[in-house]
Nucleic acid binder design. Structure first.
Lengths: 255, 255
DNA sequence: CGGTCAAGGATTTTCGAAAATCTGTTGATT
DNA sequence: AATCAACAGATTTTCGAAAATCCTTGACCG
Protein backbone atom coordinates (compact mmCIF):
# COMPACT_ATOMS: atom_id res chain seq x y z
CA UNK A 1 0.00 0.00 0.00
CA UNK A 2 0.82 3.50 0.16
CA UNK A 3 2.89 6.32 -0.67
CA UNK A 4 3.67 8.25 -3.67
CA UNK A 5 3.26 11.74 -2.78
CA UNK A 6 5.04 14.97 -2.93
CA UNK A 7 7.61 13.59 -5.27
CA UNK A 8 5.34 12.52 -8.03
CA UNK A 9 3.25 15.59 -7.92
CA UNK A 10 6.36 17.33 -8.95
CA UNK A 11 5.24 17.78 -12.43
CA UNK A 12 3.18 20.58 -12.24
CA UNK A 13 1.66 23.35 -13.86
CA UNK A 14 -1.08 21.39 -15.52
CA UNK A 15 -4.18 23.39 -16.02
CA UNK A 16 -6.02 20.65 -14.30
CA UNK A 17 -9.38 22.30 -14.02
CA UNK A 18 -11.29 21.67 -17.22
CA UNK A 19 -10.80 17.98 -17.83
CA UNK A 20 -9.41 17.58 -14.36
CA UNK A 21 -6.58 15.35 -15.55
CA UNK A 22 -3.57 16.16 -17.63
CA UNK A 23 -1.20 13.27 -17.24
CA UNK A 24 1.62 12.02 -19.32
CA UNK A 25 0.30 8.54 -19.29
CA UNK A 26 -3.18 7.16 -19.69
CA UNK A 27 -2.78 5.08 -16.57
CA UNK A 28 -1.97 8.23 -14.63
CA UNK A 29 -5.02 9.99 -16.00
CA UNK A 30 -7.23 7.03 -15.20
CA UNK A 31 -5.83 6.96 -11.68
CA UNK A 32 -6.57 10.63 -11.10
CA UNK A 33 -10.04 10.46 -12.60
CA UNK A 34 -11.15 7.40 -10.70
CA UNK A 35 -9.67 8.74 -7.50
CA UNK A 36 -11.58 11.95 -7.92
CA UNK A 37 -14.80 10.09 -8.62
CA UNK A 38 -14.35 8.03 -5.47
CA UNK A 39 -13.59 11.02 -3.27
CA UNK A 40 -16.49 12.99 -4.71
CA UNK A 41 -18.79 10.07 -4.08
CA UNK A 42 -19.67 9.67 -7.73
CA UNK A 43 -18.54 6.10 -7.28
CA UNK A 44 -20.22 4.91 -4.11
CA UNK A 45 -18.65 2.86 -1.37
CA UNK A 46 -18.76 -0.87 -1.99
CA UNK A 47 -19.74 -0.41 -5.62
CA UNK A 48 -18.17 -3.06 -7.86
CA UNK A 49 -15.78 -1.70 -10.45
CA UNK A 50 -16.34 -3.92 -13.46
CA UNK A 51 -13.98 -3.50 -16.32
CA UNK A 52 -16.71 -3.30 -18.89
CA UNK A 53 -18.20 -0.36 -17.03
CA UNK A 54 -14.85 1.34 -16.52
CA UNK A 55 -13.94 0.82 -20.14
CA UNK A 56 -17.05 2.61 -21.31
CA UNK A 57 -16.99 5.30 -18.65
CA UNK A 58 -13.36 6.31 -18.99
CA UNK A 59 -12.89 5.23 -22.60
CA UNK A 60 -9.76 3.20 -21.92
CA UNK A 61 -8.48 -0.29 -22.32
CA UNK A 62 -7.65 -2.84 -19.65
CA UNK A 63 -4.00 -2.05 -19.08
CA UNK A 64 -4.21 1.53 -17.84
CA UNK A 65 -7.37 0.78 -15.88
CA UNK A 66 -5.73 -2.14 -14.16
CA UNK A 67 -2.72 -0.06 -13.26
CA UNK A 68 -4.93 2.68 -11.88
CA UNK A 69 -6.89 0.23 -9.76
CA UNK A 70 -3.70 -1.33 -8.43
CA UNK A 71 -2.51 2.07 -7.31
CA UNK A 72 -5.85 2.91 -5.76
CA UNK A 73 -5.82 -0.37 -3.94
CA UNK A 74 -2.48 0.44 -2.37
CA UNK A 75 -4.01 3.69 -1.18
CA UNK A 76 -6.96 1.82 0.24
CA UNK A 77 -9.51 3.60 -1.91
CA UNK A 78 -10.47 0.35 -3.62
CA UNK A 79 -10.26 -3.23 -2.44
CA UNK A 80 -9.58 -6.29 -4.56
CA UNK A 81 -10.52 -9.91 -4.04
CA UNK A 82 -8.53 -12.66 -5.63
CA UNK A 83 -10.14 -13.31 -8.99
CA UNK A 84 -13.34 -11.45 -8.34
CA UNK A 85 -12.27 -7.99 -9.26
CA UNK A 86 -12.26 -4.62 -7.57
CA UNK A 87 -14.76 -2.54 -5.67
CA UNK A 88 -14.81 0.85 -4.03
CA UNK A 89 -13.61 0.66 -0.41
CA UNK A 90 -16.20 0.95 2.32
CA UNK A 91 -16.39 3.92 4.63
CA UNK A 92 -17.50 4.03 8.22
CA UNK A 93 -17.27 6.25 11.23
CA UNK A 94 -14.79 3.85 12.81
CA UNK A 95 -12.50 4.00 9.77
CA UNK A 96 -12.82 7.75 9.73
CA UNK A 97 -11.60 8.01 13.31
CA UNK A 98 -8.80 5.57 12.64
CA UNK A 99 -7.69 7.62 9.67
CA UNK A 100 -7.87 10.91 11.52
CA UNK A 101 -6.12 9.69 14.66
CA UNK A 102 -3.32 8.08 12.68
CA UNK A 103 -3.00 11.25 10.68
CA UNK A 104 -2.79 13.19 13.90
CA UNK A 105 0.03 10.99 15.16
CA UNK A 106 2.05 11.34 11.98
CA UNK A 107 1.40 15.02 11.47
CA UNK A 108 2.14 15.77 15.08
CA UNK A 109 5.59 14.29 14.84
CA UNK A 110 6.17 15.90 11.46
CA UNK A 111 5.10 19.31 12.73
CA UNK A 112 7.37 19.01 15.73
CA UNK A 113 10.33 18.22 13.52
CA UNK A 114 9.45 20.96 11.06
CA UNK A 115 9.45 23.50 13.87
CA UNK A 116 12.86 22.22 14.85
CA UNK A 117 14.37 22.31 11.37
CA UNK A 118 12.38 24.93 9.45
CA UNK A 119 14.11 27.89 7.84
CA UNK A 120 12.91 31.18 6.37
CA UNK A 121 11.61 29.62 3.18
CA UNK A 122 9.52 27.23 5.20
CA UNK A 123 7.99 30.09 7.14
CA UNK A 124 7.30 31.95 3.92
CA UNK A 125 5.57 28.92 2.44
CA UNK A 126 3.29 28.67 5.44
CA UNK A 127 2.29 32.32 5.31
CA UNK A 128 1.65 32.11 1.58
CA UNK A 129 -0.43 28.94 1.88
CA UNK A 130 -2.47 30.42 4.71
CA UNK A 131 -3.12 33.53 2.70
CA UNK A 132 -4.23 31.56 -0.34
CA UNK A 133 -6.53 29.45 1.80
CA UNK A 134 -8.06 32.34 3.63
CA UNK A 135 -8.67 34.40 0.49
CA UNK A 136 -10.41 31.60 -1.28
CA UNK A 137 -12.35 30.71 1.83
CA UNK A 138 -13.75 34.23 2.15
CA UNK A 139 -14.58 34.38 -1.53
CA UNK A 140 -16.42 31.06 -1.47
CA UNK A 141 -20.17 31.49 -1.85
CA UNK A 142 -22.57 29.47 0.18
CA UNK A 143 -23.63 27.53 -2.88
CA UNK A 144 -20.24 26.62 -4.25
CA UNK A 145 -19.65 24.64 -7.40
CA UNK A 146 -17.75 21.41 -7.28
CA UNK A 147 -14.68 22.99 -8.85
CA UNK A 148 -14.62 25.67 -6.17
CA UNK A 149 -14.79 23.07 -3.42
CA UNK A 150 -11.99 21.23 -5.17
CA UNK A 151 -9.86 24.34 -5.18
CA UNK A 152 -10.70 24.95 -1.55
CA UNK A 153 -9.65 21.43 -0.68
CA UNK A 154 -6.43 21.84 -2.63
CA UNK A 155 -5.51 24.96 -0.72
CA UNK A 156 -6.42 23.40 2.58
CA UNK A 157 -4.17 20.45 1.82
CA UNK A 158 -1.37 22.77 0.74
CA UNK A 159 -1.58 24.67 4.00
CA UNK A 160 -1.38 21.54 6.08
CA UNK A 161 1.51 20.14 4.10
CA UNK A 162 3.32 23.49 4.14
CA UNK A 163 3.36 23.32 7.93
CA UNK A 164 5.12 19.96 7.79
CA UNK A 165 7.31 20.50 4.77
CA UNK A 166 10.51 21.13 6.74
CA UNK A 167 10.28 17.96 8.81
CA UNK A 168 13.20 16.38 6.96
CA UNK A 169 11.53 12.99 6.78
CA UNK A 170 10.34 11.59 3.51
CA UNK A 171 8.27 8.92 5.21
CA UNK A 172 6.45 11.39 7.43
CA UNK A 173 5.66 13.57 4.44
CA UNK A 174 4.49 10.70 2.26
CA UNK A 175 2.34 9.20 4.99
CA UNK A 176 0.86 12.61 5.76
CA UNK A 177 -0.13 12.99 2.13
CA UNK A 178 -1.57 9.51 2.02
CA UNK A 179 -3.65 9.96 5.12
CA UNK A 180 -4.78 13.41 4.11
CA UNK A 181 -6.04 11.93 0.86
CA UNK A 182 -8.00 9.39 2.85
CA UNK A 183 -9.56 12.02 5.02
CA UNK A 184 -10.61 14.01 1.95
CA UNK A 185 -12.99 11.19 1.25
CA UNK A 186 -14.74 11.96 4.50
CA UNK A 187 -14.38 15.72 4.24
CA UNK A 188 -16.05 15.97 0.86
CA UNK A 189 -19.61 15.23 2.06
CA UNK A 190 -19.24 17.79 4.82
CA UNK A 191 -18.08 20.41 2.33
CA UNK A 192 -21.04 19.73 0.10
CA UNK A 193 -23.34 19.87 3.06
CA UNK A 194 -21.81 23.10 4.20
CA UNK A 195 -22.34 24.57 0.77
CA UNK A 196 -25.96 23.52 0.79
CA UNK A 197 -26.80 24.49 4.38
CA UNK A 198 -24.35 27.15 5.46
CA UNK A 199 -25.53 27.61 9.02
CA UNK A 200 -26.76 24.64 10.94
CA UNK A 201 -28.35 25.45 14.27
CA UNK A 202 -27.38 22.29 16.18
CA UNK A 203 -23.74 22.68 15.26
CA UNK A 204 -21.71 24.87 17.51
CA UNK A 205 -20.25 27.34 15.05
CA UNK A 206 -16.68 26.36 14.34
CA UNK A 207 -14.16 29.04 13.51
CA UNK A 208 -11.98 27.05 11.16
CA UNK A 209 -10.07 30.05 9.93
CA UNK A 210 -9.30 31.01 13.50
CA UNK A 211 -8.03 27.51 14.20
CA UNK A 212 -5.77 27.71 11.19
CA UNK A 213 -4.44 31.09 12.19
CA UNK A 214 -3.70 30.03 15.77
CA UNK A 215 -1.96 26.93 14.44
CA UNK A 216 0.13 29.02 12.09
CA UNK A 217 1.08 31.50 14.78
CA UNK A 218 2.14 28.86 17.27
CA UNK A 219 4.18 27.20 14.54
CA UNK A 220 5.91 30.38 13.47
CA UNK A 221 6.58 31.20 17.14
CA UNK A 222 8.33 27.79 17.29
CA UNK A 223 6.08 26.77 20.15
CA UNK A 224 6.17 23.10 19.39
CA UNK A 225 4.01 21.85 22.25
CA UNK A 226 1.27 24.37 21.58
CA UNK A 227 1.30 23.85 17.82
CA UNK A 228 1.03 20.07 18.14
CA UNK A 229 -1.82 20.44 20.62
CA UNK A 230 -3.66 22.82 18.33
CA UNK A 231 -3.18 20.54 15.36
CA UNK A 232 -4.56 17.57 17.28
CA UNK A 233 -7.53 19.61 18.43
CA UNK A 234 -8.15 20.80 14.89
CA UNK A 235 -8.18 17.26 13.60
CA UNK A 236 -10.38 16.06 16.45
CA UNK A 237 -12.88 18.83 15.79
CA UNK A 238 -12.97 17.86 12.12
CA UNK A 239 -13.71 14.29 13.16
CA UNK A 240 -16.56 15.30 15.39
CA UNK A 241 -18.05 17.41 12.63
CA UNK A 242 -17.81 14.61 10.10
CA UNK A 243 -19.32 12.19 12.59
CA UNK A 244 -22.30 14.48 12.99
CA UNK A 245 -22.86 14.74 9.27
CA UNK A 246 -22.45 11.01 8.73
CA UNK A 247 -24.90 10.18 11.49
CA UNK A 248 -27.65 12.21 9.91
CA UNK A 249 -30.18 10.59 7.65
CA UNK A 250 -28.79 10.78 4.16
CA UNK A 251 -30.44 12.88 1.55
CA UNK A 252 -30.88 10.83 -1.58
CA UNK A 253 -28.30 11.57 -4.21
CA UNK A 254 -29.10 12.20 -7.82
CA UNK A 255 -29.31 8.97 -9.83
CA UNK B 1 -0.46 -18.41 -26.69
CA UNK B 2 -1.14 -19.86 -23.32
CA UNK B 3 -0.26 -19.66 -19.76
CA UNK B 4 2.44 -22.18 -19.29
CA UNK B 5 2.49 -21.40 -15.64
CA UNK B 6 -0.29 -23.89 -15.22
CA UNK B 7 2.05 -26.60 -16.38
CA UNK B 8 4.90 -25.49 -14.21
CA UNK B 9 2.94 -25.38 -11.05
CA UNK B 10 0.91 -28.43 -11.66
CA UNK B 11 0.29 -28.92 -7.98
CA UNK B 12 -2.04 -26.25 -6.78
CA UNK B 13 -1.35 -26.71 -3.11
CA UNK B 14 2.40 -26.84 -3.35
CA UNK B 15 4.11 -25.92 -0.13
CA UNK B 16 5.39 -22.41 -0.21
CA UNK B 17 8.97 -23.22 0.63
CA UNK B 18 10.45 -24.40 -2.62
CA UNK B 19 9.56 -21.64 -5.02
CA UNK B 20 8.65 -19.25 -2.25
CA UNK B 21 5.63 -17.99 -4.13
CA UNK B 22 2.22 -19.52 -4.34
CA UNK B 23 -0.17 -16.89 -5.47
CA UNK B 24 -3.52 -17.19 -7.05
CA UNK B 25 -2.59 -14.79 -9.71
CA UNK B 26 0.54 -14.39 -11.78
CA UNK B 27 0.75 -10.75 -10.90
CA UNK B 28 0.79 -11.66 -7.24
CA UNK B 29 3.55 -14.19 -7.79
CA UNK B 30 5.59 -11.71 -9.78
CA UNK B 31 5.14 -9.17 -7.02
CA UNK B 32 6.37 -11.56 -4.35
CA UNK B 33 9.31 -12.79 -6.40
CA UNK B 34 10.57 -9.37 -7.41
CA UNK B 35 10.08 -8.07 -3.90
CA UNK B 36 12.15 -10.93 -2.55
CA UNK B 37 14.88 -10.32 -5.11
CA UNK B 38 15.04 -6.66 -4.15
CA UNK B 39 15.18 -7.33 -0.42
CA UNK B 40 17.79 -10.04 -0.88
CA UNK B 41 19.88 -7.69 -2.96
CA UNK B 42 19.75 -9.90 -6.00
CA UNK B 43 18.40 -6.85 -7.78
CA UNK B 44 20.72 -4.04 -6.78
CA UNK B 45 19.70 -0.52 -5.82
CA UNK B 46 19.27 1.80 -8.76
CA UNK B 47 19.31 -1.06 -11.24
CA UNK B 48 16.96 -0.44 -14.18
CA UNK B 49 14.15 -2.94 -14.47
CA UNK B 50 13.69 -3.38 -18.21
CA UNK B 51 10.73 -5.38 -19.30
CA UNK B 52 12.71 -7.52 -21.69
CA UNK B 53 14.93 -8.59 -18.79
CA UNK B 54 12.01 -9.17 -16.46
CA UNK B 55 10.15 -11.11 -19.10
CA UNK B 56 13.03 -13.53 -19.50
CA UNK B 57 13.90 -13.74 -15.83
CA UNK B 58 10.43 -14.34 -14.46
CA UNK B 59 8.93 -15.90 -17.57
CA UNK B 60 5.90 -13.65 -17.64
CA UNK B 61 4.22 -11.21 -19.93
CA UNK B 62 3.85 -7.47 -19.56
CA UNK B 63 0.56 -7.29 -17.71
CA UNK B 64 1.45 -9.12 -14.51
CA UNK B 65 4.91 -7.57 -14.45
CA UNK B 66 3.49 -4.11 -14.77
CA UNK B 67 1.03 -4.73 -12.00
CA UNK B 68 3.80 -6.04 -9.78
CA UNK B 69 5.98 -3.02 -10.43
CA UNK B 70 3.11 -0.66 -9.73
CA UNK B 71 2.58 -2.30 -6.37
CA UNK B 72 6.28 -2.22 -5.58
CA UNK B 73 6.38 1.43 -6.49
CA UNK B 74 3.68 2.25 -4.01
CA UNK B 75 5.76 0.45 -1.38
CA UNK B 76 8.77 2.48 -2.39
CA UNK B 77 10.85 -0.53 -3.34
CA UNK B 78 11.01 0.64 -6.95
CA UNK B 79 10.75 4.09 -8.46
CA UNK B 80 9.23 5.00 -11.82
CA UNK B 81 9.92 7.91 -14.12
CA UNK B 82 7.31 9.08 -16.54
CA UNK B 83 7.90 7.13 -19.74
CA UNK B 84 11.34 5.86 -18.90
CA UNK B 85 10.44 2.80 -16.92
CA UNK B 86 11.19 1.48 -13.50
CA UNK B 87 14.31 0.99 -11.43
CA UNK B 88 15.12 -0.43 -8.02
CA UNK B 89 14.88 2.22 -5.31
CA UNK B 90 18.10 3.57 -3.86
CA UNK B 91 19.17 2.89 -0.31
CA UNK B 92 21.16 5.08 2.03
CA UNK B 93 21.92 5.43 5.69
CA UNK B 94 19.71 8.51 5.86
CA UNK B 95 16.75 6.62 4.38
CA UNK B 96 17.42 3.77 6.77
CA UNK B 97 17.18 6.04 9.78
CA UNK B 98 14.07 7.70 8.40
CA UNK B 99 12.45 4.31 7.93
CA UNK B 100 13.43 3.08 11.37
CA UNK B 101 12.42 6.23 13.24
CA UNK B 102 9.06 6.39 11.48
CA UNK B 103 8.58 2.74 12.23
CA UNK B 104 9.37 3.44 15.85
CA UNK B 105 6.77 6.18 16.01
CA UNK B 106 4.04 4.02 14.51
CA UNK B 107 4.89 0.87 16.39
CA UNK B 108 5.19 2.76 19.65
CA UNK B 109 1.65 4.04 19.38
CA UNK B 110 0.40 0.67 18.19
CA UNK B 111 2.06 -1.14 21.07
CA UNK B 112 0.64 1.27 23.57
CA UNK B 113 -2.86 0.71 22.23
CA UNK B 114 -2.37 -3.04 22.05
CA UNK B 115 -1.41 -3.09 25.73
CA UNK B 116 -4.56 -1.16 26.44
CA UNK B 117 -6.91 -3.36 24.43
CA UNK B 118 -5.23 -6.77 24.27
CA UNK B 119 -7.01 -9.88 25.51
CA UNK B 120 -5.92 -13.43 26.32
CA UNK B 121 -5.64 -14.48 22.69
CA UNK B 122 -3.34 -11.56 22.02
CA UNK B 123 -1.10 -12.61 24.92
CA UNK B 124 -1.07 -16.17 23.66
CA UNK B 125 -0.08 -15.04 20.20
CA UNK B 126 2.87 -13.11 21.58
CA UNK B 127 4.13 -16.02 23.63
CA UNK B 128 3.79 -18.37 20.68
CA UNK B 129 5.57 -16.01 18.29
CA UNK B 130 8.38 -15.46 20.76
CA UNK B 131 8.79 -19.18 21.23
CA UNK B 132 8.91 -19.82 17.49
CA UNK B 133 11.46 -17.06 17.04
CA UNK B 134 13.67 -18.16 19.87
CA UNK B 135 13.66 -21.83 18.84
CA UNK B 136 14.61 -21.06 15.29
CA UNK B 137 17.19 -18.56 16.42
CA UNK B 138 18.95 -21.11 18.63
CA UNK B 139 18.84 -23.70 15.91
CA UNK B 140 20.32 -21.37 13.31
CA UNK B 141 23.88 -22.30 12.37
CA UNK B 142 26.53 -19.68 11.87
CA UNK B 143 26.57 -20.34 8.17
CA UNK B 144 22.86 -20.27 7.45
CA UNK B 145 21.28 -20.81 4.08
CA UNK B 146 19.17 -18.10 2.52
CA UNK B 147 15.99 -20.04 3.22
CA UNK B 148 16.87 -20.26 6.90
CA UNK B 149 17.47 -16.54 7.10
CA UNK B 150 14.16 -16.04 5.34
CA UNK B 151 12.40 -18.16 7.91
CA UNK B 152 14.18 -16.31 10.69
CA UNK B 153 13.06 -13.01 9.24
CA UNK B 154 9.51 -14.28 8.92
CA UNK B 155 9.40 -15.27 12.57
CA UNK B 156 10.96 -12.01 13.63
CA UNK B 157 8.33 -10.09 11.72
CA UNK B 158 5.59 -12.26 13.19
CA UNK B 159 6.80 -11.55 16.70
CA UNK B 160 6.83 -7.82 16.17
CA UNK B 161 3.41 -7.79 14.57
CA UNK B 162 2.01 -10.09 17.27
CA UNK B 163 2.91 -7.47 19.85
CA UNK B 164 0.86 -4.89 17.99
CA UNK B 165 -1.97 -7.06 16.75
CA UNK B 166 -4.48 -5.91 19.37
CA UNK B 167 -4.03 -2.20 18.72
CA UNK B 168 -7.48 -1.94 17.11
CA UNK B 169 -6.24 0.31 14.34
CA UNK B 170 -6.07 -0.90 10.79
CA UNK B 171 -3.90 1.99 9.71
CA UNK B 172 -1.35 1.44 12.44
CA UNK B 173 -1.13 -2.24 11.55
CA UNK B 174 -0.84 -1.63 7.82
CA UNK B 175 1.78 1.06 8.23
CA UNK B 176 3.73 -1.11 10.64
CA UNK B 177 3.79 -3.90 8.07
CA UNK B 178 4.82 -1.52 5.33
CA UNK B 179 7.65 -0.01 7.31
CA UNK B 180 8.81 -3.36 8.58
CA UNK B 181 9.06 -4.53 4.99
CA UNK B 182 11.20 -1.52 4.20
CA UNK B 183 13.51 -2.19 7.09
CA UNK B 184 13.94 -5.80 5.97
CA UNK B 185 15.77 -4.41 3.01
CA UNK B 186 18.35 -3.01 5.37
CA UNK B 187 18.31 -5.94 7.77
CA UNK B 188 19.09 -8.51 5.11
CA UNK B 189 22.72 -7.53 4.56
CA UNK B 190 23.34 -7.59 8.31
CA UNK B 191 21.85 -11.06 8.56
CA UNK B 192 24.06 -12.31 5.80
CA UNK B 193 27.08 -10.71 7.40
CA UNK B 194 26.18 -12.20 10.72
CA UNK B 195 25.95 -15.61 9.15
CA UNK B 196 29.34 -15.18 7.53
CA UNK B 197 31.19 -13.62 10.47
CA UNK B 198 29.38 -14.68 13.60
CA UNK B 199 31.48 -12.80 16.13
CA UNK B 200 32.83 -9.40 15.26
CA UNK B 201 35.22 -7.91 17.77
CA UNK B 202 34.45 -4.23 17.27
CA UNK B 203 30.75 -4.80 17.79
CA UNK B 204 29.58 -4.75 21.33
CA UNK B 205 27.82 -8.09 21.56
CA UNK B 206 24.11 -7.50 21.31
CA UNK B 207 21.73 -9.80 23.12
CA UNK B 208 18.86 -9.64 20.70
CA UNK B 209 16.99 -12.50 22.29
CA UNK B 210 17.25 -10.80 25.64
CA UNK B 211 15.87 -7.59 24.17
CA UNK B 212 12.95 -9.50 22.72
CA UNK B 213 12.25 -11.23 26.00
CA UNK B 214 12.35 -8.03 28.03
CA UNK B 215 10.04 -6.42 25.49
CA UNK B 216 7.63 -9.31 25.73
CA UNK B 217 7.64 -9.31 29.51
CA UNK B 218 7.01 -5.59 29.80
CA UNK B 219 4.19 -5.95 27.30
CA UNK B 220 2.54 -8.85 29.07
CA UNK B 221 2.90 -6.99 32.36
CA UNK B 222 0.95 -4.18 30.69
CA UNK B 223 3.74 -1.75 31.47
CA UNK B 224 3.11 0.51 28.54
CA UNK B 225 5.80 3.11 29.19
CA UNK B 226 8.51 0.52 29.68
CA UNK B 227 7.47 -1.56 26.69
CA UNK B 228 7.44 1.43 24.36
CA UNK B 229 10.85 2.51 25.63
CA UNK B 230 12.27 -0.95 25.12
CA UNK B 231 10.83 -1.14 21.62
CA UNK B 232 12.35 2.20 20.68
CA UNK B 233 15.71 1.15 22.09
CA UNK B 234 15.51 -2.14 20.21
CA UNK B 235 14.87 -0.33 16.94
CA UNK B 236 17.58 2.23 17.63
CA UNK B 237 20.11 -0.52 18.34
CA UNK B 238 19.17 -2.21 15.09
CA UNK B 239 19.78 1.05 13.29
CA UNK B 240 23.21 1.50 14.81
CA UNK B 241 24.14 -2.03 13.88
CA UNK B 242 22.98 -1.59 10.29
CA UNK B 243 24.83 1.70 10.08
CA UNK B 244 28.03 -0.02 11.12
CA UNK B 245 27.66 -2.73 8.50
CA UNK B 246 26.74 -0.28 5.77
CA UNK B 247 29.72 1.94 6.55
CA UNK B 248 32.17 -0.89 6.10
CA UNK B 249 33.90 -1.40 2.78
CA UNK B 250 31.74 -3.72 0.77
CA UNK B 251 32.94 -7.14 -0.15
CA UNK B 252 32.43 -7.70 -3.85
CA UNK B 253 29.51 -9.93 -4.62
CA UNK B 254 29.70 -12.86 -6.97
CA UNK B 255 28.89 -11.89 -10.55
C1' DC C 1 34.13 24.12 -35.11
C1' DG C 2 29.76 24.08 -32.59
C1' DG C 3 24.96 23.44 -32.66
C1' DT C 4 20.35 21.93 -34.51
C1' DC C 5 17.51 18.58 -36.47
C1' DA C 6 16.02 14.23 -38.39
C1' DA C 7 16.26 9.15 -38.94
C1' DG C 8 16.70 4.77 -36.74
C1' DG C 9 16.71 1.76 -32.90
C1' DA C 10 15.40 0.69 -28.25
C1' DT C 11 11.90 0.82 -24.68
C1' DT C 12 7.67 1.75 -22.66
C1' DT C 13 2.74 2.00 -22.94
C1' DT C 14 -1.65 0.64 -24.80
C1' DC C 15 -4.79 -2.23 -27.18
C1' DG C 16 -8.06 -6.05 -28.14
C1' DA C 17 -8.42 -10.87 -28.29
C1' DA C 18 -7.71 -15.36 -26.01
C1' DA C 19 -7.42 -18.13 -21.84
C1' DA C 20 -8.53 -19.08 -17.09
C1' DT C 21 -11.62 -18.64 -13.48
C1' DC C 22 -15.83 -17.73 -11.05
C1' DT C 23 -21.02 -17.82 -10.48
C1' DG C 24 -25.48 -19.32 -11.03
C1' DT C 25 -28.57 -22.86 -12.89
C1' DT C 26 -30.21 -27.10 -14.52
C1' DG C 27 -30.94 -31.81 -14.06
C1' DA C 28 -29.91 -36.30 -12.49
C1' DT C 29 -29.25 -39.21 -8.39
C1' DT C 30 -29.89 -40.70 -3.67
C1' DA D 1 -36.56 -32.95 -0.75
C1' DA D 2 -31.65 -32.39 -0.74
C1' DT D 3 -26.94 -32.91 -2.78
C1' DC D 4 -23.85 -32.70 -6.25
C1' DA D 5 -21.83 -32.49 -10.92
C1' DA D 6 -21.57 -30.39 -15.05
C1' DC D 7 -22.78 -26.80 -18.21
C1' DA D 8 -23.38 -21.87 -19.78
C1' DG D 9 -22.74 -17.07 -19.17
C1' DA D 10 -20.24 -13.45 -17.15
C1' DT D 11 -15.87 -11.55 -15.53
C1' DT D 12 -11.20 -11.29 -14.63
C1' DT D 13 -6.54 -12.16 -15.94
C1' DT D 14 -2.92 -12.87 -19.28
C1' DC D 15 -0.86 -12.68 -23.67
C1' DG D 16 1.68 -10.81 -27.70
C1' DA D 17 1.50 -7.46 -31.15
C1' DA D 18 0.83 -2.54 -32.37
C1' DA D 19 1.28 2.33 -31.25
C1' DA D 20 3.60 5.97 -28.81
C1' DT D 21 7.59 7.82 -26.86
C1' DC D 22 12.42 8.38 -25.77
C1' DC D 23 17.38 8.18 -26.76
C1' DT D 24 21.33 7.91 -29.72
C1' DT D 25 23.80 8.82 -33.88
C1' DG D 26 25.14 11.27 -37.69
C1' DA D 27 24.42 14.60 -41.21
C1' DC D 28 23.76 19.32 -42.26
C1' DC D 29 24.01 24.30 -41.62
C1' DG D 30 25.52 28.69 -39.48
Amino acid sequence: MVVRAANDQAHPQSSSSATGTVGVTLAEQAYLKIRKDIIHGHLSPNQPLRFEYLRETYDLSFSPLREALTRLQSERLVVASALKGYRVAEISIAEMWDTLRTRSLIEGQALSQAIQFGDDDWEGGIVAAFHALSRHSQRLPDQAAADDIDEMERRHRNFHLALLSACQSRWLMDLSSLLYLQSERYRWPTLQRKAAKPSRPETSPRDIEGEHQALMEATLARDSAKAVTLLAAHTEATGRYIEQIMSEPQAAAAP
